[in-house]
């Protein structure tokens, strides 16, 4: 068994704008089961950070407990990281973000970590619109404890246990839309062409961004009758749009048919181009997203892609009206008013 990755890379692969090779964004070798969807998501995160030329020290990865929450070890070895308590990743991220708003926060969670033990944290972090990417690696089972059904397992879906799920599933995407999350998307670990631009978009979004990624558990939930297996998802996948993320100062090279394509300029000058596949859907209209999601559910389809995005959103810092300087950089002199200032304040109450 291999414990370390070879250090050699492909000699012809280029470095990105900040001088790193894609390999520099990788982590140690994964200890998840071979073929785990989570590893594909890790690879998509690596690809995204390489493409966007993120300096590793500008990113913090945070996670809870579970197979999903082990993955930060397998990507971005040179970034900050915090493996927190089960279901408590959102509150740790909130603390970190409040202390230093200059970092990019990449939260990784799973269906158990978010939809069961961490549900309270999940809904509140949406409510607070914390500026972070929240990736749920959703496999519909508790893979780390022998594959019991999780709260996102679809009604009737059959995992390796052989017993159909008897409870209704929690749909994290529907819930997030209902809670007025400012960015909601769903994807599939086996579709990097969609997943990578979605993560890029989420990283650029100035508020809370949820990507619910269906990620098959090859060991416990990849049978023909599971709704979260590779084959079932591939057979039932439907996308809202083909997505193309064009970072600021880069040329637009993809051309879509007129009438179908939609360009959205982001707050930092980047552009997202969508080639709409779903009718009656507008990524900036929450109601249309909810309708479209419900329709797909009724038809037994799995709707993926960008569902909703509010480009004008205000994140927690703007809602709290904090100062521009990250709080952890404020020195004693900035935080302690002088005697004159105190005098001024007292005077104002007279």
């Amino acid at each position: 068994m291999s414990f370390i990755k070879p250090t050699f890379g492909h000699p012809a692969l280029p470095k990105n704008k900040v001088g790193y090779r894609k390999k520099d964004y990788e982590g140690v070798i994964s200890t998840l089961c071979a073929g785990c969807g989570h590893d594909s998501i890790s690879a998509a995160i690596v690809q995204t950070c390489y493409d966007l030329s993120i300096e590793p020290h500008r990113l913090a990865k945070l996670s809870g407990i579970g197979c999903s929450s082990k993955t930060p070890t397998y990507f971005l070895s040179n970034s900050h990281g915090f493996n927190s308590v089960h279901g408590r990743m959102p509150s740790v991220t909130t603390g970190a973000n409040l202390a230093n708003k200059d970092l990019i926060y990449m939260g990784v969670s799973g269906d158990g970590d978010s939809a069961s033990i961490g549900m309270g944290q999940f809904v509140h972090v949406i409510r607070r619109n914390l500026n972070m990417v929240y990736i749920v690696m959703n496999n519909g089972c508790y893979g780390l404890t022998k594959g019991q059904d999780s709260a996102t397992a679809d009604f009737g879906s059959i995992s390796k246990t052989g017993v159909p799920t008897s409870f209704q599933a929690i749909d994290l995407v529907g819930l997030a839309l209902e809670l007025k999350a400012s960015f909601v998307a769903r994807s599939f670990s086996g579709d990097k062409q969609q997943l990578v631009p979605l993560i890029k978009l989420a990283m650029t979004h100035p508020g809370f961004a949820l990507i619910d990624v269906i990620s098959p558990c090859v060991t416990f939930n990849n049978g023909a009758k599971s709704t979260k297996s590779y084959s079932f998802v591939r057979d039932h996948i439907e996308a809202t749009s083909a997505l193309d993320f064009v970072p600021k100062e880069e040329e637009i090279t993809v051309n879509y048919q007129e009438g179908q394509s939609l360009e959205v300029e982001l707050h930092d000058g980047s552009i997202v181009r969508l080639n709409k596949l779903a009718k009656d859907w507008n990524p900036r209209d929450r109601q249309s997203a909810l309708n479209r999601l419900q329709k797909a559910k009724n038809e037994g389809e799995i709707l993926t892609g960008l569902l909703y995005m509010d480009t004008e959103t205000k994140d927690l810092h703007r809602l709290l009206n904090t100062v521009d300087t990250p709080l952890n950089q404020l020195r004693e002199a900035d935080l302690t008013p002088s005697i004159e200032a105190l005098e001024r304040i007292n005077q104002s109450f007279r």
């Binding site: 990755k5 070879p6 250090t7 050699f8 890379g9 492909h10 692969l13 894609k22 390999k23 070798i29 994964s30 071979a34 073929g35 785990c36 969807g37 590893d39 594909s40 890790s42 690879a43 670990s189 086996g190 990097k192 098959p216 090859v218 990849n222 590779y230 084959s231 591939r234």
Partner: peptide, 15 residues
């Protein structure tokens, strides 16, 4: 092959 991409993701030399 179930096309899980695992080989493509792990290959150190992107072959």
């Amino acid at each position: 092959c179930i096309e899980c991409d695992a080989c493509m993701d792990i290959c150190p030399t992107s072959c």
